[in-house]
Computed example of a mutant assay.
Amino acid sequence: MESFLAVLGHPFVLFYRSLEKFGAFLLFQIKLLPLFLTPPYRIKETFKQIEIIGIGSFFVIFLTALFTGLVEAIQLYQGFHRFNAENFMGYTIFVSISKELGPVFGALMLTSRAISAMAAELGTMRVTEQIDAIDTLAIDSKKFLLIPRIIATTISLPILVIVFVFVANLSAYIIATYALGVNPTAYKNTVTMYLDFSDIGTGIIKAFVFGYLISTIGSYIGYFTRGGARGVGLSTTRAVVFSAMTIFAANYFLSAVFLYLDW
């Protein structure tokens, strides 16, 4: 009987713990907000983190965008060719990349490369008591360690997404016109005729939101790491998994909001 009740109550316990952890994360967010506005601002460290997070992720973003554009053109060509509508591929590819694939894929790649490293670095500093040492010096370790990383990620991701959109659309245009035989003039005309600022703006706004969310998740998980070397490994895994889940969830809600606003 007791084992049956334990099995029955296990999902409720997990749900309660999940709510508890989510509440702790929200409190962490609330405590961080004033730190963005209070000096010192550590501008030099912020630019250093932009170099590490943003410039360091350029190559992987470039490669991901290159092959995304190639695959997007090939797959859409198969569908459009059945209806003799290949000339309308340009705008469709541009919108799908700039609104969805660019910000989502860019955020996922930045998560796998930079956020995982961020969580591992902060987790190592926690288990080796470096963060405790900073606190003992009357320095706010959150402002000292987390704020530059969060700002750098929030700035870097939109720039990387712009690069992603440009490279992916360029590679899609090249393979569509030179390899698949799509009329290059018609391809470009559909983009220029139907393109709206919101087609670009929504992707950039998503990138800002994704950048802030994944950086705070990676910072939070790394900052509160426990359990030595094993805990650092677990924190790195959790940072990647929770960041990826948050990207997909936030993408849905942002897309729904933009649809409601007709933007």
Rank of each mutant, 00 (worst) to 15 (best):
E45I: 12
F22Y: 09
D262T: 11
P34G: 02
S219T: 07
V209L: 09
P34A: 00
Q78M: 11
D132V: 02
T202H: 06
Y16N: 12
S112Y: 10
I134Y: 00
V13F: 14
G211L: 02
G222I: 07
L122V: 11
S235E: 05
E86K: 12
F208K: 04
Y173T: 09
Q75D: 09
A65D: 06
G201D: 07
L137I: 00
I214E: 01
G9Q: 13
Q78R: 14
A73M: 11
A6Y: 12
F80M: 14
H10Y: 14
L195M: 14
Y16M: 13
V104Y: 01
S112H: 10
G231F: 06
T237K: 10
T46C: 05
T192E: 08
M109N: 13
L170N: 04
G102D: 11
A207R: 02
V161D: 06
A239T: 10
A176H: 06
M1Y: 12
L160S: 06
G211K: 01
V104R: 04
P184M: 06
Q49W: 03
G54P: 03
F28S: 06
L145H: 08
E45A: 12
Y220C: 02
I162L: 14
S156C: 11
E45P: 05
Y16K: 13
I93K: 09
P34F: 00
T225M: 04
F242M: 09
T237V: 11
L137T: 03
I115A: 11
G54L: 08
L5S: 15
L14S: 15
L180Y: 06
L122P: 14
K188I: 12
I53E: 08
V60R: 08
V165Q: 11
T154D: 01
M193N: 13
T154P: 03
F59T: 14
G203K: 08
F197G: 15
K206T: 03
I93W: 02
L145C: 10
A133N: 04
L76M: 15
I30N: 01
S171Y: 01
L76T: 14
T124R: 14
K21W: 11
A107N: 05
Y194S: 11
N183G: 06
G201P: 11
L261V: 05
L261C: 04
A229Q: 12
Q78G: 00
F83C: 09
A249G: 00
V191W: 02
W263C: 02
G56Y: 09
A207F: 01
A152P: 06
T190M: 09
A172T: 02
S215K: 03
L70K: 04
F224S: 04
K142I: 00
D199M: 05
G218Q: 07
L37N: 01
I131Y: 01
S18T: 15
V127N: 08
F25K: 07
G9E: 14
T246A: 15
G222N: 07
T185D: 10
W263G: 01
D196V: 14
G23I: 09
T68I: 04
M245E: 10
F166D: 04
L14I: 14
G211T: 03
L19P: 10
G218C: 05
L213H: 00
T124F: 11
Q49L: 04
G222D: 04
G218P: 06
I221W: 05
G123S: 09
A229Y: 08
T38K: 13
R226W: 00
R238Y: 13
Y212L: 07
S3M: 13
K206W: 05
V163P: 03
D196G: 14
I134A: 00
L70P: 05
Y260A: 06
L101T: 08
A117G: 15
F144V: 00
S243P: 10
